[in-house]
């Protein structure tokens, strides 16, 4: 009898331990997935307009890094938020919780209930599509997130992604700028830090009015 009780007790302990271990591993896996997702979003991603109907997206290749002249040690983002160590046990991430996003507006930080959009994990894909929509095939763009933020735009409080965008025209001309992207729709809200080209040849685009 005693032996049986001991056996039952042992099995029960083992069962609880297994459940605990399984739960912990699953939680950790989710954390890692979230972290990997976040790390992936913080790396360069290429959007290649293969044709008018097709845009391919994938992590930027080594060759493309060279072609786009992406600095291996690019720490161009000035904010320190991305360098802060995240809380080990946090249950959510800045993507999903606007309270964790730095407020980049003037005046008091809005309440979560006042935020007008929601985080879309596919925002980068939407951005790539929006960016290349009117551009010719063989236009390449690479996008990297620098940070997430909260801003006020046209009277609305929005979650946005602060990104670096580089583009290469089919002729090989390079462009770059920083942008705020709507975290829900992937649409660019504003741009800044656009490249200043010297362009030693008189090659400005000329537009001709239509004749009637």
């Amino acid at each position: 009898m005693k032996k049986q009780l001991k056996l039952i007790f042992l099995c029960t302990c083992l069962l609880f331990l297994s459940i605990g271990a399984f739960s912990y591993l699953r939680w950790q896996g989710n954390q890692e997935m979230a972290m990997n997702h976040r790390e992936a979003e913080n790396k360069w991603k290429t959007f290649n307009k293969v044709s008018n109907k097709e845009i391919k997206s994938y992590p930027t290749t080594e060759k493309e890094r060279k072609d786009f002249k992406l600095d291996e040690d690019d720490h161009s983002h000035d904010s320190h938020e991305s360098k802060k160590r995240s809380v080990a046990s946090q249950k959510t991430t800045p993507e999903k919780d606007p309270n964790l996003r730095p407020w980049k507006g003037i005046g008091a930080r809005p309440l979560s209930s006042e935020i007008d959009n929601e985080y879309n994990p596919e925002w980068k894909e939407e951005l790539g599509k929006n960016l290349l929509r009117f551009l010719r095939p063989k236009t390449l763009s690479v996008i990297k997130r620098e940070n997430s933020a909260l801003i006020k735009h046209k009277g609305k409080y929005l979650m946005v992604e602060h990104v670096a965008i580089k583009l290469q025209s089919p002729e090989g001309q390079h462009y770059g700028y920083n942008a705020y992207v709507d975290s829900a729709s992937g649409k660019i809200i504003r741009t800044w830090n656009r490249t200043i080209h010297e362009k030693f040849s008189r090659s400005a685009l000329r537009l001709s009015p239509s004749r009637n």
Binding site: F134, T191, S208
Partner: peptide
């Protein structure tokens, strides 16, 4: 005023403006 509404001109113009980051969306 002069109106620029030719498809080729507008394609070139919008492409140039998007590449340079001057306009953000259509």
């Amino acid at each position: 005023a002069f109106v620029i509404d030719g498809q080729a001109d507008i394609l070139s113009a919008i492409e140039s403006l998007i590449l340079s980051g001057q306009i953000t969306s259509i």
